[in-house]
Computed example of a mutant assay.
Amino acid sequence: MYFPFLRGKQHELFALRDLNDSKVLSDEIFPVIEPVKYSTQLVSIVRGLLNDNRKLIVIMNPVVGTFLADLNDNEEQMEEILELMSHPNATIGYHINSNTALDELPQLVKRCGRYLEDTAIFHNDLRSLDNYEAIFGESEAKFNFIPDIKPLKRRFANNNGVLLRDSFIKRTPNAEYLNHQIEWFSSDHLDFEQEGFLGFSDYSIVGEEYTESGFGAKAVAFHIIYPDESNNLWVSHFVSDSNENRADQAGKFGEALYKFVNWYKQNKTALIDTQGLKELLDCNENGNFPGLGMLKRYSIKHHLELVGNMLVKV
């Protein structure tokens, strides 16, 4: 099972909705959404996915953004989210650490009409274990998301463990990807079961680091995951060349897209065609610059559909 960890920003949410509406989001994919702020868009998309029988994990105490503050400042919004988390296809996600109050999660679960054993716990380090054991006692959470730390891997192997790893190497500025055009991504989809885990998780092609949207970069870059002959996953970076200033974002995209199209023609027999890739190819056909947010959406859609297909393939 693949648990993509997506921040609840616009293009991540739309990527999920698009794939679900097109019936190409594999049942082997169990999305994790960490909302960065409350919005009617978030509620609408999450509710639509849940009502369409898509199982989701929604983290109720995000470590980034303003979501918690938004809810604490508006009781109506709080009740709306709690009602959403009472849906049978929703799983309450919760970050636990050494500072977690022992009554926080039980109270939240009770307000949603759920059980502790139905939750997904996100462990940040070894110091979280004492609080986890105090809260859960002899039982276990439904899912335990853990970083790649050996004692945690030992503790949760064969005990509802999900390995959460940031497989994407974030480089700044974007032009730095010109020096690393092809990079290793992951083989977790091949290895997780033999390591005793229920599944694996990553931050797609966005990476763990959270940033708000900013100004257009000097270099336009997008990132495409692909399998090699052994079904390991690699990432290819497509980057513009005219990177002296922030002018002409559309022209920069055209430079990166030209590289992608040539690469696709040479490698398409090794790829699994996806909706996201087709949308990129349509940009080339139509001479269209969709905007940087849409580029991220296309890349995420490709990644999720590809990994879903890979899990069926392997």
Rank of each mutant, 00 (worst) to 15 (best):
D130A: 13
N97I: 06
F122I: 15
K110W: 09
L102C: 08
D103N: 12
S98M: 09
N97G: 13
T100M: 02
N124Q: 15
A101W: 08
S98A: 14
F122S: 10
D103C: 04
L116G: 03
Q107K: 09
N99D: 04
A120M: 10
Y115G: 04
T100A: 00
R114H: 06
C112I: 05
N97Q: 02
R114V: 12
I121H: 05
T119Y: 05
T100E: 04
L102P: 04
A101H: 14
I96C: 07
L105I: 00
A101K: 15
E117M: 03
R114I: 10
L105Y: 00
Y115Q: 15
D130S: 13
I96S: 08
S98Q: 13
D125L: 01
D125R: 11
I96M: 12
C112W: 04
N131S: 08
T119A: 05
D118I: 00
H95S: 00
D125G: 11
I121R: 03
S128F: 07
N99I: 02
A120P: 10
L126Y: 12
N99F: 09
D130G: 02
P106W: 05
F122Q: 13
L102K: 12
D118S: 11
N131I: 13
N131T: 03
N124L: 11
E117T: 14
T100N: 02
A120I: 13
L126T: 11
P106T: 04
D103H: 02
S128E: 04
D125T: 13
D130W: 03
T119H: 04
Y115W: 13
L129I: 15
L126H: 09
S98L: 09
K110Y: 11
H95K: 01
H123M: 15
G113D: 12
Y115M: 12
N99P: 02
L126W: 09
T100H: 05
A120W: 07
R127M: 10
N124P: 03
I96H: 04
F122H: 14
A120C: 14
V109W: 00
N97A: 08
H123Y: 07
N99R: 06
N131W: 04
C112L: 05
L126R: 09
H123G: 10
D130Y: 05
C112M: 08
S98Y: 15
Y115N: 15
L102E: 12
